[in-house]
Amino acid sequence: MDISYEDVVQFLFREAALLDQREYEAWLALLDEGIRYRMPVRVTRDFGESDDFIDDMTFFDETKRSLQTRVERFRTTSAWSENPPTRTRHIVSNIRVVNRERPDAVQVASYFLILRSIRDSSESAHIFGERVDTIHRVDGQLKLAERTIYLDQTVFPMLNLSIFI
């Protein structure tokens, strides 16, 4: 069965809600066993220079196993960056299907804006950029098979990245 635009939108919005509600085990269940989850470092380059994402250096370069370890860490009593938890809103928009070469898989690009409230600070930290995902159907369920996170900021503006994007 083809993956519809409605399927994609529902998938991404549900995923965002699970992350904001810290339902990380349910979030992990959306990820394919072979997922590649990467976030290359962005740089400022001269006008006309090719790529301003550095594939060789990342903030995340994860497998399902390493993401599971990160989630298990958040479930300990002493992951201080999220104890007490920070509060996030994953705003996902401008969703567009960019590749439909296979019937059971789509490549999807979306914008993200993540607002994060930490402790009693009245200032909200925010990061923004674009994600390029491959979503495919496994045994009737949609799974995230690949995600590359393209941040717009070259200097990461938060004290840490103890959240998922």
């Binding site: 903030f59 370069d61 990160r70 860490r73 201080w80 004290l159 840490n160 103890s162």
Partner: peptide, 24 residues
Amino acid sequence: SYLSYIGSFGPAGTLEQDDAEIWT
């Protein structure tokens, strides 16, 4: 070695996340 670094240090590193929290 790179994956070990990414996993533990840097802003997303599982060790350094908590250092930054406490230093602030």
